[in-house]
Design a protein around this nucleic acid. Structure first.
Lengths: 364, 364
DNA sequence: AATTAGCAATCATAAATATCGACTGCTAAT
DNA sequence: ATTAGCAGTCGATATTTATGATTGCTAATT
């Protein structure tokens, strides 16, 4: 008989798995042998397909929700599907255009840029859009000022080079004069520009020491201020938009428990923020590659039990040639991975570009 | 035989309705005649109760989900229940204490105060906590400054007397000198303090005209700046926390549709913000009463179809003797109204007090 | 007149049962 | 190596039956 070369058999097996996962993603119906035989282009009878499916099940790529049902992909199956994707399909031109159009000019500030980006991600993907902002503590300072609020209160304002603005009130032990505040502001801004947050403190205090006599009171204030800047260990704010999309997508969640636990995760954003933060840390080390690949975490791979029925597609964005943040989407395990990966990739490019433009404008 | 005076019969009817609504709120089970006879203290037989229930149904206070089921309150029934509540039950002392303890000192800024308040509301009520922040445009200014970001960019910072801080970037047509910025800041802050947002613009521009020669460029900037301040028509930000509580409370929502529509309302906060905004407007006119009563909107009374299975308990908070914002909770129609009303009332007191303290500290 | 007991009627809910049909796995034929 | 054929499994769905909570009505009772 026709002897089949093992490579060919192997190849066919992969194709069938690919087809099956794809079919399941599209229809959310368990895949049966006859469906594959009928609708796939394999020219094989259901019986043969069954044999192959059986092997795939043994290998852990598929499973049967119950005897005599079709098969569904396991996490491993999805994982294979994603890894096997030959080319990251390009985003359709009109989709790009739509996104472009909504990318308003008014996004001059980092917070607004990021929250708008997560909203866009969610709208286009019809899943939850996530954006983790850069850690304030890791950025370089551009401006640090205080403005008097009357009495002993002042408001500290910090602007980083990437465009992050933070403000917080400080209660002093004395009422500063306008002159004092002026002096301090001038002094701060002559010295901290371009410093990292942590360096700034040491630097300013050192310089301040030299001229201490004049500024006894101010020295205290400056110390206080910089201390607070240093302790801004915010893990980076997480912008989440469109969590409700996940619900409307999942037609078949009979189980209210799932919905609830999901809700909890979403509203207690900390878990996700933590996950992304850890991931960011890892990627920070590998310095800003030219083309960072979107990363996909399927189901339990995320390490968060509540997310085991969801998948996470993320990638990084850069500022100044360095990775500074993460963005991505969170949606059904049955999402259209190719599209989502290119979407995430594209958005990351937009954010990076916008940040770069700011940097350039600064130079001028 | 014993002739019953009509007033007494009427009174009894009300008591039974009250008892029935209360029972339903607590157990979420339809109320049957025998339950009332057994567990209520009415000394009446089920048969008699049945007659009364029938009347109450005819009057529109109760309805049967189906023949041969007990009765549940209609919106009108809940409404009666709320209005009939003799005394607004005081919040338990230990609950107050718990709240007090969580009211951290660090809440120095309005945004933080309000978001923390909504979180607290949600945690104590186990429903969604809502806080509508004061409209920036309606507040009086305390401070308005710009700080240079290099090149033609500046960052405008606005602080209102109530402690609201807003910042936004401005792109100028020229690069201002440090001296110019300094002058403008001094000028602005000598003039706008205590002004309403709308007055500020007229005032400053008028004064600026007088000395125009010196400040030709600045005049442009100031105009631009104040224009933007004026157009901050933000309807007031809405803080929502704990929307997921609503889900976990509703044990018996078999219907996924309800969950979804709820989710949509929550994430599209605009509808609720609009409702509260309108309500605020109404209450703004009746100037800050000594003791504003918590308002309850039951089901469809809110005017938002998606909320027809929920109730809204709100009240106002004051600054400077004037109503400036609204806070409340959104939860199941079966909520414990008395407790919720006193909770909302109490929190409103706390916020008002905190704002007043800030105002006082300013005086010093 | 007001209340109550008694009783038939109603109907959601749950449990038990039967039916259907979509799959699979295996075996034997090609 | 592939395929056809077939028995067996099991979820999903429909059908039936039983259960019991609760009502409305009427006639008896106080």
């Amino acid at each position: 008989m026709r002897q089949l070369k093992p490579e060919i058999a192997e190849r066919r097996k992969k194709d069938i798995l690919q087809w099956a996962v794809h079919y399941y993603i599209k229809t959310s119906r368990p895949v049966s042998s006859s469906i594959i035989a009928d609708e796939g282009r394999f020219e094989l009878s259901p019986a043969t397909i069954r044999n192959i499916l059986q092997e795939l099940e043994e290998d852990g790529y598929l499973y049967q929700p119950h005897t005599s049902a079709g098969r569904e992909p396991t996490d491993k199956g999805y994982r294979f599907f994603v890894d096997y994707l030959a080319d990251v399909q390009r985003l359709a031109a009109d989709e790009k255009e739509g996104i472009e159009r909504q990318y308003q000019e008014r996004m001059q500030e980092l917070d607004i840029l990021l929250s708008e980006t997560s909203r866009l991600l969610s709208r286009v993907s019809r899943s939850a859009g996530l954006v983790l902002s850069p850690q304030a503590a890791r950025q370089t300072l551009k401006r640090l000022e205080i403005i008097p609020l009357g009495g002993k209160s002042v408001l500290a304002i910090l602007v980083t080079e990437a465009g992050l603005v933070r403000h917080w009130p400080i209660e002093l032990s004395f009422a500063p004069s306008a002159r004092q505040i002026n002096t301090l502001n001038r002094f701060l801004n002559e010295n901290i520009r371009g410093c990292g947050v942590s360096q700034a403190q040491a630097l300013v205090m050192a310089k301040l020491k030299q001229i201490e006599d004049e500024f006894r009171d101010l020295s205290l204030l400056a110390d206080n201020l910089l201390q607070q800047v240093g302790s801004m260990v915010e893990p980076g704010a997480l912008f989440v938009e469109g969590a409700d999309n996940i619900l409307s997508q999942a037609e078949e969640i009979g189980d209210l428990k799932v919905v609830q636990s999901l809700m909890r995760v979403i509203s207690e954003k900390d878990a996700i923020a933590g996950l992304l933060g850890r991931e960011l840390k890892i990627r920070l080390q590998g310095k800003g590659d030219a083309a960072p690949k979107p990363q996909v975490r399927i189901g339990a791979e995320s390490g968060i039990p509540e997310l085991s029925s969801l998948s996470l597609v993320t990638t990084t964005y850069n500022y100044n040639g360095r990775v500074v943040g993460i963005l991505g989407i969170l949606g059904s395990k049955r999402m259209e991975y190719p599209r989502m990966m290119s979407l995430v990739d594209y958005m990351s490019g937009l954010v990076t570009a916008r940040l770069a433009r700011w940097a350039k404008e600064d130079e001028e």
